[in-house]
Amino acid sequence: MPREAEPSLSERTFTLQAISEGLRLDSRKLDQFRPLELSFGDEYGVADVKLGKTRVLAKVSAEVTVPFSDRPFDGIFQITSELGPMVAPSFEVNRPTETEILLARLLEKTIRRSGALDTESLCLIAGQKCWSVRVDLHILSADGNLIDSSCLAVVAALRHFRRPDTSIEGETLTIYTAAEREPVPLSWLHSPFCTTFDFFGEDGEIVLVDTTWLEEQLRVGSVTFSLNKHGEICQISKLGGKPVEATLIIQCAQMALAKSKEFTDLVDARLAEDAKRRDKGGLMAELSAENER
């Protein structure tokens, strides 16, 4: 296994020195994110998030399967993420690293456990047929703040996704192709977004957001908040690290709420843009032309 790359002594001391002076290497403010780009693919349910040099891609797919026997009224919803050697040679396939475990757990807690997707709506025939929705998260390049960008990509992809429409008549289940009926969006309840705060300094009193890989290597602790725009916390995780003052954590929560609203607006705006782009030609125009005859 190749060694994980480590910053040199000069990089360490200089970066920390600069942070203690309130400066960052890319001239950002301490509480400023890198420019965030969100774009959708041609297919439904593909979201591509670029945050500086970090890039993640989420792809949603759905198929009809048999529900779990202990949950006959629920559909299946899972999020899979893999950090492979494409990100960095130190990540091996099938041997999850700490980063990967924590990322998977965080997405699970933020999106799945908080009930962002109504899994009951995925049930078609109780105990027999249900939709299985699966999000595949691909990390294409990692330069810090994987958590925030991954969460945004997964939420955006799920909200962008359309599954084929279905109907039940008696015992027969019909699944319509996109040409027969317009695909329908998932039953989405709320959109949680993660914001990670990284602590620096002797007592962890300096707070940074959206750290790059180098800054992430040097932090003394971090806390991730997941909130939706209604101000509901879905998850908080400060997993060890240097102890920080409780008041600072409360301040971070308020900042996370503001950030979450910003993310919500961004995703809403991009989704509206994308819907507009699709509306022009496409299926609806085709169908309406037929109706005119």
Partner: peptide, 16 residues
């Protein structure tokens, strides 16, 4: 590229 200076800001500017 290794950059050194008395001022932190100068180093950041040169690097950027």
């Amino acid at each position: 590229l290794w950059v050194d200076s008395d001022s932190t800001k100068t180093i950041i500017v040169v690097g950027r």
